[in-house]
Design a protein around this nucleic acid. Structure first.
Length: 509
RNA sequence: GACCGCUUAGCUCAGCCGGUAGAGCAACUGACUUUUAAUCAGUAGGUCGAGGGUUCGAAUCCCUCAGCGGUCACCA
């Protein structure tokens, strides 16, 4: 269990609130009130509470109640105390739906109930029963007859206007962040809503959701460095998966369904940044008898609908710019796009050496052993990628950088692949799947060569996967989409940590 | 992983060409059954991230370490 770095005052002389001495430590004051509650016979941590309404329900139900009017309607609410005004006469309670003011007036409460208010603090979770009214100043309130301590809080809430802005504490103690920062709650709720929407969309199209292993014996399905873990019982090291791709396609071979998808975590042993968390959530989908053209349609429709589901429109502001998700999205081949931005037509260039020279003239430096495809990719990354603000499918990648994609039906230098970009970020990667076992073996062998030449991220030869292809993978199209990034776009979040409940942080000392 | 920056009260922040700390919120005492960041009067709260150095004297200058942030590299 992680200890909290906030115990500094515990040993100071008067912090325990000994009789006749003022309590100066806020935490000690809370502890003293907890004790006082117990002495009054009030259970500070009861088991259950009978609530009749959420805050938002009341605001909806009484939205037409006029200022200054009282009702006889009895309600029971519960929530965390976020503000107390006028000596506890006005208390703002926050529940999962919103806030509601409770009005603790001495005319409506007996002496005992009033006295108990003195033992409540900001942060406590209480219940309140009473009647609905709207104050003369227009605030919907519960005129309280009785309150109930539901959970005594012993910690101090951060400042009420500025909230909690210390980034480290926000992520390390997400619960505090969620209590005080509305935006954090909204963003993480939106994440849930988006992922739920995508799952429903996939199910509605008849796709089968599956789960495949996190512990892999062989790396594959992506180019990335892995985490390694040890399984004691088998005396064997496993990789935490970098992608589920090769497992999912085995399921298509098996014919479990024509469409399968998985929404789950991948792990990549790389640095963190505002766009990278070492564990991240992806959806991958595989569809028999489809090709990559079908997937462009699918992604446009899925993402477009998701945007509309969250925002009620398909045109939203991201990073200060309007982005329009209404289709059709631009579809452009990687070579054409590179030509647009560098003036170099790589399709007219045959050798790697000429390609490297042409790139250099365009201001893009490449490794001296870079092949034609890697040069094209480098030019795209440096010159074109960041310009793709509006949703764009970049198609037909060089085969050298796409070991699992099927060759293009009309052009042997490229494969039937596309990546979708929004706001300058890749959000999806898809291709017509390579299903010729002999070609797949050649591609794997090229990867193994790269690996032996020192490329830690090159893929391994997965013999069993080739065997699966030999049994026969039907024509299939597959895609993956980073859901953390999609959520960032749809919530206009600038840091991936904001869309992950508990982002990875360096362990403290 | 490299470079740059940040770390002061529970929270949000001042103070920084060296003279051992200040505000608002939160807390406590009291006033007002009034509110919407309620208000008013008073009280208390800090080994200034950790360790070392320079100096008569360090929150302030120097070094090391830790955490965090940013940029770059790798990548989705």
């Amino acid at each position: 269990m992680m200890t909290q770095p906030v115990e500094k005052n515990q040993t100071s002389d008067n912090s325990n609130g000994t009789p006749n001495e003022p309590i100066t430590n806020p935490k000690a004051a809370k502890a003293a009130k907890l004790q006082a509650l117990k002495e009054k016979g009030v259970e500070p941590y009861p088991h259950v509470y009978d609530r009749t309404h959420m805050a938002a329900e009341l605001h909806e139900k009484y939205k037409d109640l006029e200022d200054g009017s009282e009702t006889e309607d009895q309600v029971s609410v519960a929530g965390r105390i976020m503000a107390m005004r006028n000596n506890g006469m006005f208390i703002d309670l926050m529940d999962a739906s919103g806030r509601i003011q409770v009005f603790c007036h001495k005319q409506s409460m007996d002496e005992e109930a009033l006295a108990q208010l003195k033992l409540y603090d900001l942060g406590d979770i209480i219940g309140a029963k009473g009647t609905m009214r709207r104050t003369p100043r227009g605030e919907l309130s519960v005129r309280v007859t009785e309150t109930f301590m539901l959970t005594k809080s012993l910690e101090i809430l951060p400042e009420k206007h500025h909230g909690l802005s210390d980034v480290e504490q926000r992520y390390r103690q997400r619960y505090v962040d969620l209590i005080v920062n509305d935006e954090s709650r909204e963003t993480l709720r939106a994440r849930s809503k988006i992922i739920s929407f995508i799952r429903r969309y996939m199910e509605d199209m008849g796709a089968l959701e599956v789960e495949t292993p996190m512990l892999h014996e062989i790396l594959g399905g992506a180019s990335a460095k892995p985490f390694v873990t040890h399984y004691n019982a088998l005396s064997h090291d496993f990789y935490l998966r970098i992608a589920p791709e090769l497992k999912l396609k085995r399921l298509i071979v098996g014919g479990i369904a024509d469409s399968v998808f998985e929404i789950n975590r991948n792990f990549r042993n790389e640095g963190v940044s505002i766009k990278h968390n070492p564990e991240f959530t992806m959806i991958e989908g595989y569809h028999a008898f489809k090709d990559y053209n079908d997937l462009m349609d699918l992604i446009e429709d899925l993402v477009g609908q998701a945007v509309e589901h969250i925002h009620g429109t398909r045109e939203i502001e991201i990073d200060g710019q309007m982005v329009n998700f209404a289709g059709p999205w631009r579809r452009v081949s990687m070579c054409d796009l590179v030509k647009e931005h560098t003036g170099v037509d790589f399709m007219a260039i045959e050798t790697a050496e000429e390609a490297r020279e042409a790139a250099l003239k365009a201001g893009v430096h490449t490794e001296s052993n870079a092949n034609w495809g890697q040069v094209v990719e480098a030019c795209f990354d440096e010159k074109a990628e960041h310009t793709l603000i509006q949703p764009t499918h970049v198609t037909d990648h060089p085969f050298e950088i796409s070991p699992l994609a099927k060759n293009h039906r009309d052009n042997p230098r490229v494969v039937e692949r596309f990546e979708t970009f929004v706001n300058g970020w890749e959000i999806a990667n898809a291709f017509t799947e390579l299903n010729d076992p002999a070609v797949q073996r050649e591609r794997f062998e090229a990867q193994v060569e790269q690996r032996e030449a020192g490329d830690e991220e090159a893929q391994m030869l997965d013999e069993d996967y080739i065997t699966a292809l030999e049994y026969g993978l039907p024509p299939t199209a597959g895609w993956g989409m980073g859901l953390d990034r999609l959520v960032m776009l749809l919530t206009d979040s600038h840091n991936i940590r904001d869309v992950i409940c508990f982002p990875t942080l360096r362990p403290k000392g």
